[in-house]
Amino acid sequence: MSGTHEARLAELGVTLPDAPAPAANYVPFVRVGDLVYVSGQISMGPDGLITGKLGDTMDVEAGAAAARTCAIALLAQCKAACGGDLDRLVRVVKLTGFVNSTVDFTDQPEVVNGASDFLVDALGDAGRHSRSAVSAAALPRGVAVEIEAIFQVS
């Protein structure tokens, strides 16, 4: 049975994938009290990794779409941390977004808005969060965006 959050995701045409497995020696999330810390989720679409460098091979719109895929993976991890019940998500507390970008690219906030806007669209006020959006000279496997999150859960 789908809960409130998943019903809203369905309205947006989004089905959460299985939570991605970690790619190295770390865990995908850690729960401490009512907080879930989710490891960085990299931009990935149905055809594999979304790679590129903002300000060179990608524009802001493509970067924002890549950030949106990170947000979907973050929710999938949060759902896994909540035993499969996404309605235990109380709110998104913080996102930290890393954007693979050139030295002179300064629109990192607009790129990470792809994740922020999606979370607010999907979760309403529970999706509003604090945030950092920073540039990175390179990201793992050449991906365009990586985002980590902190969620409050019940």
Rank of each mutant, 00 (worst) to 15 (best):
M1I: 00
G3R: 09
G3C: 06
T4R: 01
T4W: 12
H5L: 15
H5E: 10
R8C: 05
A10Q: 09
E11D: 14
G13P: 02
T15H: 15
L16I: 13
L16A: 13
P17C: 06
A21G: 10
A21P: 11
A23H: 12
A23V: 03
N25R: 04
F29L: 05
R31Q: 14
V32S: 13
V32R: 14
G33Y: 07
D34V: 08
V36G: 00
Y37L: 06
V38D: 02
S39A: 08
Q41W: 11
Q41H: 00
I42C: 07
I42L: 15
S43M: 03
S43I: 06
S43E: 02
S43C: 00
G45K: 08
G45C: 03
G45L: 03
P46F: 02
P46Y: 12
P46V: 01
P46A: 13
G48T: 13
G48H: 15
L49W: 12
T51C: 12
K53Q: 10
K53D: 04
G55V: 13
D56H: 15
T57I: 02
T57K: 05
D59I: 12
D59R: 15
D59C: 11
V60N: 13
A62H: 12
A62N: 10
A64Q: 01
A64R: 09
A65Y: 11
R68V: 02
R68D: 15
T69Q: 10
T69M: 14
T69D: 11
C70T: 05
C70A: 12
C70M: 08
A71P: 04
A71D: 14
A71W: 02
L74W: 01
A76M: 06
A76G: 06
Q77M: 12
C82P: 03
C82W: 01
G84E: 03
D85K: 10
L86G: 10
D87C: 02
D87S: 10
D87N: 07
L89K: 00
R91K: 06
R91D: 04
V92D: 04
T96P: 07
T96D: 10
V99G: 08
V99I: 01
V99K: 04
T102R: 01
T102C: 01
T102A: 06
V103W: 14
V103G: 11
V103P: 01
D104I: 06
T106P: 09
T106A: 08
D107L: 11
D107G: 14
E110W: 09
E110R: 10
N113W: 13
N113F: 07
G114C: 12
G114V: 07
A115E: 08
A115M: 11
S116V: 07
D117N: 06
F118A: 02
L119P: 00
V120F: 00
L123T: 02
L123Q: 00
G124Y: 05
D125G: 15
D125T: 14
A126I: 01
A126T: 08
A126M: 12
R128H: 13
H129G: 00
H129Q: 10
S130M: 09
R131Q: 15
R131G: 05
S132G: 14
S132H: 03
S132Y: 11
A133I: 01
A133W: 05
V134D: 12
V134H: 06
A137V: 03
L139Y: 12
P140W: 05
R141L: 04
R141D: 07
V143F: 04
V145I: 00
E146W: 07
I147P: 09
A149Q: 07
Q152V: 15
Q152E: 05
S154Q: 09
S154L: 15
